[in-house]
Write a protein that binds this DNA or RNA. Structure first.
Length: 423
RNA sequence: GGAUAGUUGGCAGAGUGGUCGAAUGCGCCAGUCUUGAAAACUGGUUUACCGAGAGGUAACGGGGGUUCGAAUCCCUCACUAUCCGCCA
């Protein structure tokens, strides 16, 4: 959610920059500014009314104490009007406040100046391409066939137990999952992120805090009996640790990492996008989260991208880094880098990580602030990134490393898997 | 699931109708003392909104009500703790 004060001060700039998202918000912005003015006017009137009423109440109290019943009763009659008036004003103000919030919920974050123009993922800017794309020759099976051939993942069994998009990992397939999780967590810790194991279900307030609610309600699994949501990413519980918190400036940046399964309903997906491991309802992911001082958040964003790149380097996977264009940028993000690995057998790029700076957009809803010495609390910046999401990494590892002898495990991973080849 | 007790400032914890944004302690910040530190002492220390400022308003889990006046009384919802039941 954008800050009202910023809208008031930088109205034109905001409207201009949101055009990068192919959005014209001038109408909404103007409406908000008008409503805000009305709200302030209403509040002033309300405050004055209440001040008057408070004053009279005090007088009545004094008079009663002095036994001057009659005088007290006289003043009492005066308060009725004030009471009625303040009730009205209160209702009015609440109504206006509600309208303002409704509009603010609909306005996405202001893109960073470096965000390129564009409508779809085809307009994303390729920042960097790295690694070698292997020539597999005749050994060129997609991962879902490899998974079957080597008994690593059983998709049908998952369908039986739960439904499509809930695979069962078996034997070395399961071991590979665990190896990757440990590898990613260890690497994150080396990079200074503290590990946390958060709850996998969150309440409504947390959903609102990071912006999954109200707009993405349909994407989360909802346990209606207890009104809890299965997390779509560890970002939700980990960032919400800092909901309604004022941290001291010298604690920044705060760096957390966590492994969790992620649950997504993925309503509306179909076709080749959901084949095999490409899109699941439940998948594993290691997430990195930072709470940062505004002055250093972009520097830290770059470092997070570097961290994810280092993981892909160590896994010896060919990848590229994209700077998302305005049309592809997430609602809450100011700047996002996607990292994609190349799947040789599928001949396509697979998104494995998304690293974003939300600036104050999340912090505003979360009421996450920092305080410098002697200063008023200021909104912090939040950042997060996948480091990494497992399924597509597994897909690429299986496909790109297949040989006539089996699937080779990259060196960096062998100490975690305990085997160097899957036969 | 049943019963009971709770929810107050960064934390602990007092306050049961007016002078309470709220005692006290701890913590934190500044100062005095000290070669330095600790201790001791002194002072300061919630947040949001409105206002150029003086100042004003709101908030004692959320919402509603009674009252001239509510942290305090009533209703309602949420959450937490403890005990019982069930159970990894």
């Amino acid at each position: 959610m954008l800050e009202l004060q910023r809208i008031r001060e930088q109205k034109d700039d905001i409207i201009e920059r949101l055009k990068i998202r192919n959005l014209d918000v001038s109408e909404q912005i103007n409406k908000v500014i008008d409503l805000d003015e009305l709200r302030r006017k209403t509040q002033r009137e309300l405050d004055d009314t209440l001040a008057e009423s408070n004053k009279l109440s005090k007088e009545i109290g004094m008079l009663f104490k002095q036994g001057k019943q009659e005088e007290a009763n006289q003043i009492k009659s005066k308060t009725a009007d004030l009471k009625e008036r303040s009730k009205q004003l209160k209702e009015e103000e609440a109504k206006i406040q509600e309208q303002i919030k409704e509009i603010l919920y609909q306005i996405p974050n202001v893109p960073h100046p470096s965000v390129p123009k564009g409508n779809t993922d085809e307009d994303n800017e390729v920042v960097l391409t790295a690694g070698e794309i292997p020539d597999l020759g005749e050994y060129n099976l997609p991962h879902w066939e490899l998974a079957k051939k080597y008994n690593l993942i059983d998709f049908e069994l998952g369908v039986k137990i739960t439904g499509a998009g809930f695979p069962v990992y078996t034997g070395k397939g399961a071991r590979l999952q665990r190896a990757l999780i440990n590898f990613f967590i260890d690497e994150a810790e080396k990079a200074g992120f503290q590990e946390v194991i958060p709850p996998l279900l969150v309440n409504e307030a947390s959903g609102y805090g990071t912006g999954q609610l109200p707009d993405k309600e349909g994407q989360m699994y909802h346990c209606t009996v207890d009104n809890l949501y299965l997390i779509p990413t560890a970002e939700v519980p980990i960032t919400n640790i800092y909901r309604d918190v004022i941290v001291s400036e010298n604690e920044l940046p705060i760096k957390k990492t966590g492994y969790t399964p992620c649950f997504r309903r993925e309503a509306g997906s179909y076709g080749k996008d959901v084949r095999g491991l490409n899109r699941l309802h439940q998948f594993d992911k290691v997430e990195i989260v930072q709470i940062a001082h505004p002055s250093q958040s972009y520097e830290l964003l770059d470092k997070m991208v570097e961290h994810v790149k280092s993981l892909l380097d160590k896994l010896e996977l060919p990848y590229r880094v994209l700077r998302l264009c305005g049309g592809d940028l997430g609602f809450t993000s100011a700047l996002t880098f996607d990292l994609e690995v190349f799947s040789v057998a599928q001949e396509r790029w697979l998104e494995v990580s998304s690293v974003s700076n939300f600036e104050t957009f999340q912090a505003n809803r979360l009421k996450l602030r920092y305080r410098g010495k002697g200063n008023k609390p200021q909104l912090a910046h939040t950042l997060n990134g996948s480091a990494l999401a497992l399924p597509r990494i597994v897909a690429a590892l299986l496909e790109n490393n297949q040989t006539k002898d089996g699937i080779k495990i990259p060196d960096a991973l062998v100490e975690y898997t305990g085997f160097s080849i899957i036969k």
